[in-house]
């Protein structure tokens, strides 16, 4: 697994510093994290425009400085309950395949430094979503933080409805 992580994140930062930085946040009460280099910006939630016929985990589209970007409800995406979005929530803007995409999370917690050696494989559990979307877990301050496999969560182009 360790080598796999290295391959996936085998960019400059990993090679330079042993530790890489992750941003941790909560979704439906659980702690998740994304590599800091995957994140473009974090914005406060503001009401989005609904996309007709969209699946429940697509909240709609948002205006990001003149670009129309889709917003996903991470919680619904992970098969957890749907988030009742409010002003306290945040939208994490990431780039998938060069296209910006917004992910709704409950709140952002902190930036954590992770030694790649500390990343553990996802133990097999009986949930398709979990196995697909989580590429590893780490223990931080005695809580379990799940590392999201961004490419699996958001596959572009997303076919909402044909």
């Amino acid at each position: 697994m360790q080598s796999q992580v290295e391959v996936k994140h085998g960019d400059q930062e990993v090679k330079h510093a042993q530790f890489s930085e992750f941003v941790s946040f909560t979704v439906a009460g659980q702690a998740f994290c994304l590599k800091i280099t995957q994140i473009r910006e974090i914005r406060r939630w503001s009401p989005v425009t609904i996309l007709p016929h969209a699946p429940s985990d697509v909240l709609g589209v948002m205006n990001l400085r003149g670009a129309v970007i889709p917003i996903y409800d991470l919680s619904a995406r992970f098969g957890l309950h749907q988030t009742e979005a409010s002003e306290r929530n945040v939208v994490i803007v990431v780039a998938v395949g060069g296209k910006p995409v917004g992910l709704l999370a409950e709140s952002v917690s902190e930036i954590i430094s992770i030694n790649p050696d500390d990343i553990q494989d996802t133990p097999p559990v009986d949930s398709r979503y979990t196995m697909e979307y989580i590429q590893g877990i780490i223990s931080h301050d005695e809580t379990m933080v799940r590392i999201i496999n961004l490419d699996a969560v958001i596959s572009v182009p997303e076919q909402v409805m044909m």
């Binding site: 425009t49 996309l51 589209v61 003149g66 889709p70 296209k99 909402v160």
Partner: peptide, 15 residues
């Protein structure tokens, strides 16, 4: 395009 697939009834978006 690239934001979502084709949506029946919607041609595009505007700001």
């Amino acid at each position: 395009d690239g934001v979502c697939g084709e949506i029946a009834g919607v041609a595009a978006a505007t700001i």
